[in-house]
Design a protein around this nucleic acid. Sequence first.
DNA 1: TAATTTTGCGGGCAAATACTCACAAAACGC
DNA 2: GCGTTTTGTGAGTATTTGCCCGCAAAATTA
Lengths: 324, 324
Amino acid sequence: MTGRDSMAGKNDNDVSRLDEAARAGWLYYVAGNTQDEIARKLGVSRQSAQRLVSLAVTERLVKVRLDHPIARCMELAQKLRERFPLQSCEVVPSDPATPASIVGIAQAAASEMERHLKSQEPKIIAFGTGRALRASIDQLPTMDCPQHKVVSLLGNMMSDGSASAYNVIIRMADRVNARHYPMPLPVFARSKRERELLHNQEPVHNILELAKDADVTFVGVGNMGETAPLFVDGFVSRDEMAALTAAGAIGEITSWVYGRDGDLIEGLTNDLVASAPLARSPDKPIIAIAAGEAKVDAMLGALRGRIVNGLITNELTAERLLAR
Amino acid sequence: MTGRDSMAGKNDNDVSRLDEAARAGWLYYVAGNTQDEIARKLGVSRQSAQRLVSLAVTERLVKVRLDHPIARCMELAQKLRERFPLQSCEVVPSDPATPASIVGIAQAAASEMERHLKSQEPKIIAFGTGRALRASIDQLPTMDCPQHKVVSLLGNMMSDGSASAYNVIIRMADRVNARHYPMPLPVFARSKRERELLHNQEPVHNILELAKDADVTFVGVGNMGETAPLFVDGFVSRDEMAALTAAGAIGEITSWVYGRDGDLIEGLTNDLVASAPLARSPDKPIIAIAAGEAKVDAMLGALRGRIVNGLITNELTAERLLAR
DNA sequence: TAATTTTGCGGGCAAATACTCACAAAACGC
DNA sequence: GCGTTTTGTGAGTATTTGCCCGCAAAATTA
């Protein structure tokens, strides 16, 4: 809070460069200038102007939103809402070339998150983990909302103590100024007893209470098998995965493994998972963010078992969900 | 809800064309495809793909938002807040080539409107008229918010009964599904007596009551003289304008003409203006949307007189306001 | 301080995009 | 049903943009 010399504009650090980038991006995307014009107006070379514009893009200063109800997507969302017990459902177009891509889903999810974050009343917003969720966070604008609490549903430590890459809360803290509560816990405890001990720690207990009262929850959905996030990221071994599959496991949300009707698998990893218990709230939104052929079965289980009551996915995945 | 052959994509009416445009725009801006790839994916020629993308832009399906606090603008906004009695103030960059342009202001204003429209509690939102306001409405996404009421602060009829081009409420009704109340009134009555009669009509009376209770108000600011909107659009004659200027008039908001300290001019057009009375609320936001060298004096008057307590303008105008 | 690495810049060029034009199909009016 | 207008299409072309490269300034290290 000391004096700052923002007038000078000569303290050529990252900030003033991003500032220029924002200006260039503004002139390009909002005012519709050509990069040549921008170069002249900002007094730099055309190439530099180009660099500034592309910097504005890569730094996600420019956010593009598409605002048209694409009939096919609306229709699919409608059908999904009819078929499954869903409060809300959003379907975004797929890129036919990379139908499993989370491009687009991230934007849609971010826009939904933003809606909640913009609310004036204090809210507790809970987050799972995963690639899609993490990509969504990256799409959030910087916001100031001290009234909210952002809480993690699960730890991000490997059993050896190293941190997983997909912890969304930390990322989120960079962008959104709200109270945030990362879960200082491994994904799996080494024994039921250890899990109990961990959960009874004062701060962890607090966070679990917060999570239970979450006003809105965003989670990813993990599949089983060779491509399972749990396996790929090294949280469960090949043998454990095989045992889970043999026990009828079909998917996983915040590392809680469930079967084809969304019923939790007894024993195995579920005895050790340290994540907050799954809350099946009928009224508070619990929104799954997921897409891809591989996740269809897992998503079906979560929907049937009402583990989630909201869904953000893409066209192709929506079609596959309805085809079953 | 009958069977539809949406896969075929051959029911070629306007809707499906915009749909295609949205899809193309999505693939281009969100998924980052080249127009060539889009052409192949949608099965059209590259030129058609280009047309679809540019259609998506001209139809305002793609909305670009810039999300970086440009230091200079923040600083100007801060200073304006310090100098004038403003609750809120936003300054957007100017395009150095066309500093009077409302490009950018419209986007910022739209985003502010959207913020209010997204609120869950029912709100009454009041609107004046003007080019900037109208351009802002065009930047709004389509929204569904039946909980709100959108009310016009003034009529849009010329004295001969023809409609002015800048009625924002009608435009708004296209985009935002809320209850809307256009004011079925001319801008000026022909006598004080007629004004009284008009205002006592049941529907008009209702709307005036709504306007009085507005939770948030957006207005434009008009200057006096040869370029005055009131004169250019033919609501007042050259002679009347001269009389106003002679009486010390400096600006106008919803056709209420005021002097350099924001005090209403006695008599003249103010005896006849049929707009809702100006409410000087200390707590409910009344936001002026205006920019341009010509409007600086008018804006200063409105600020001094606390006719507005919020401001959205651009860099250049902000500088001029502070220079006085 | 000198050597080395890093970073940013402008020139040039290939790719991508926007625009113009002539033409054809659909919509419209009579 | 026939001419007229409107709307959309593809080809060609000018403009704009993205990217690679060598160079020089700045930062880093020894």
